[in-house]
Simulated assay, not measured.
Amino acid sequence: MPPDISLTVLSLLCLAALAAGWIDAVVGGGGLLLLPALLVGLPHTPVVQVLGTNKSAAVVGTTAAAVTYVRKTPVDVWAALRIGLAALAGSLGGAFFAAGINSAVLRPLIMVILLGVLAFVLLRPAFGTASAPSGPVTRRRVLAAILLVGLGIGFYDGLIGPGTGAFLIVALSAVLRMDLVAASATAKIVNVCTNVGALTVFTLQGAVLWQLGAVLALFNLIGGMVGARMALKRGAGFVRGVLVVVVVALLCKLAYDQWYGA
């Protein structure tokens, strides 16, 4: 536990972890809330330790959400694990380079990616709300999912992390033609793999504040379980709506921090 952290800051970080777990379970992207909160709350902590601590909390909430989805809705676990193994390899590579990331580049990079996601979703109103077509997915699409979703997004998750869940959901819906609930369920399994891979590297580097991570993980776990149940109950339309709201809100927050923040 950082020696200079106050009870107020710790309480706010716990609330951020709770909200991040809920957001991550529904549409992904909870790290876009928790990671900036950690960067602000722990200004004197090296960025690599902030990233590692974020992963230690996120892996617990993501695992809880994945278990909830698998128990409540049909999921092609084998396909998800194949993509997840590729994502694990990608996240290991990304985490290896994460120590060289400067916090000054995080906001602009994430903003560009978020703008792309928002444009894609808004320009396709029916995206992810219709039922997936019947019949098996072609090998070409599965291979594309392994390379793009697995290796590509996995590398990003290990390197930076925030927004991975949202990017996974959009990519899985587009490549494998899943509705958003099925994509969200699959994304959670893949995201568990990427989190484990990245956390392994951060642990070997000694870049995890375990006591703080354990406290945040508890709140992230609660948020993840509640979010997954709500997504299953409300359906794809609810997931799409939350996705748009979250992306817009985060873009506004990041833009304010970039141009008007201290």
Rank of each mutant, 00 (worst) to 15 (best):
L15W: 03
Y69H: 07
P43C: 10
F127E: 11
G21C: 08
L88A: 07
G90N: 07
A58D: 00
G30W: 01
Q49C: 08
L13N: 01
F96I: 15
R82C: 11
A87N: 04
F120I: 05
D76L: 08
P136R: 14
G94R: 10
W22T: 13
P136S: 15
V142K: 10
T45V: 15
L114V: 07
K72M: 14
A25V: 03
G28E: 03
A25N: 04
L122D: 08
V60F: 09
A98F: 07
A119Y: 13
L92T: 08
V48G: 08
D24R: 03
I101N: 00
V142I: 14
P108S: 08
M111V: 12
T138F: 02
V75I: 13
R139K: 15
F127N: 05
V67D: 08
G94T: 11
V59E: 05
I101R: 01
A58V: 07
A65N: 04
S103E: 15
V40C: 08
A119F: 15
T129S: 02
T62Y: 04
V60L: 05
L123E: 12
R82D: 10
A57T: 09
A119G: 15
L39Q: 06
L92W: 13
V67I: 15
V47N: 12
A99Y: 13
V67A: 14
V117K: 00
V47S: 09
G52R: 00
R82V: 09
F96E: 13
N54R: 08
L34V: 02
L118N: 05
L85F: 14
L123T: 15
P74R: 12
T62L: 02
A98L: 10
L81N: 10
S91N: 05
A86G: 04
V112E: 06
L123K: 15
L115D: 11
V121A: 05
T68V: 09
L51M: 15
V48E: 13
G90F: 00
I110Q: 04
G90H: 01
V60P: 06
R124P: 09
I113V: 13
V67G: 09
F127A: 06
S56P: 05
V142C: 10
Y69G: 00
K72N: 13
L18S: 06
A86K: 02
A87L: 03
I23W: 02
S134C: 09
T63M: 14
N54F: 02
F120W: 09
A132N: 06
L109C: 14
P36V: 00
M111F: 11
K55C: 02
A98V: 11
V105E: 00
L38E: 00
D76R: 10
G93M: 11
I101H: 06
A17Y: 01
L32C: 05
T62E: 03
L33Q: 01
A87V: 00
A25R: 02
G84W: 00
W22G: 01
A87D: 00
G41I: 06
R107M: 07
